[in-house]
Design a binder for these strands. Structure first.
Lengths: 139, 139
DNA sequence: ATCGTTTTTGCAATCTGATTGCATGTTTAG
DNA sequence: CTAAACATGCAATCAGATTGCAAAAACGAT
């Protein structure tokens, strides 16, 4: 049940640095929210954008965050919840993108349904992205 | 049942140009295959990359092709089949990406299952991307 | 706490794909 | 066939991603 940034980094044998702590903390503070590199850069003036870039690579490799594909070509990242609850498999949930506010979030509690693929094909990962209007914007 | 490039362009009120014809023809010749701009550029030396770029924008706006999101940030495009069979809704099929050959294809005959989203959310589009190994590479 | 090793960071530079402005060429309706 | 509308090529720019390298920070062992 690692819910603080430091424990998360430690559990993955990543060195504890201020930048990593702040980035992970931001993900924790915005549970289920996804952010692109640029958004993370503006969080704090303290870090170079290359540092944020490399921080995201580290977090990605460690499985702390996952990457969410989208049509714009700008990568988005969200916290993976594997370490919180092993039943939740980090890349098998739905990603939701609001057409109005543009926010991308992970719908952790909404599983990806069974997907049928043609005979002879092997499935290894499913990525389900839903576009629509979120609760806030739909009011 | 428009199966030739010219009819497709005409049906969408797009002007008939050589570049558009060649690009659409390539999509027709490679049914269900997805291509990035770069791949389309190398098809023919005849066109500037900006022309291919703008051709794709035109085809996209006309609904002749659709864009497939991926993690790399390089946009991929595939033919939409709306005009062939109105029962097939162009963005509701599965996109498959082979981890070995890298090829992206549309699984036209494999529909996206029903997706449940939280109460209060509105769904407008579903994009399902499956990573795995394709028939060819799996042999 | 300090040392030495290993890793991370900042900066500058580069790369690649996406995008725009403008002058010229092509398409199409009449 | 002509004029208006639109598409193309070229050059230039932009933005995000990525790398090299030297300086700084983290960490295990003393």
């Amino acid at each position: 049940m690692a819910v603080d940034a430091k424990s998360i980094l430690k559990s993955k044998n990543l060195r504890i640095t201020n930048c990593r702590l702040e980035v992970v903390q931001h993900f924790i503070d915005n549970q289920s929210g996804a952010f692109c590199q640029r958004e993370l850069e503006t969080l704090s003036e303290a870090y170079d954008r290359v540092t944020i870039y490399r921080t995201l690579i580290s977090l990605l490799n460690a499985g702390i965050v996952h990457k969410i594909p989208n049509e714009t070509g700008v990568a988005n990242y969200a916290l993976s919840h594997v370490y919180e609850d092993s039943e939740k498999h980090f890349d098998q949930h739905i990603h939701f993108k609001c057409e109005q506010c543009g926010k991308i979030e992970c719908l952790e509690d909404h599983k990806v349904p069974e997907v049928a693929i043609p005979t002879g094909y092997k499935l290894s990962k499913v990525n389900l992205i839903v576009d629509g209007v979120c609760l806030q914007c739909g009011k």
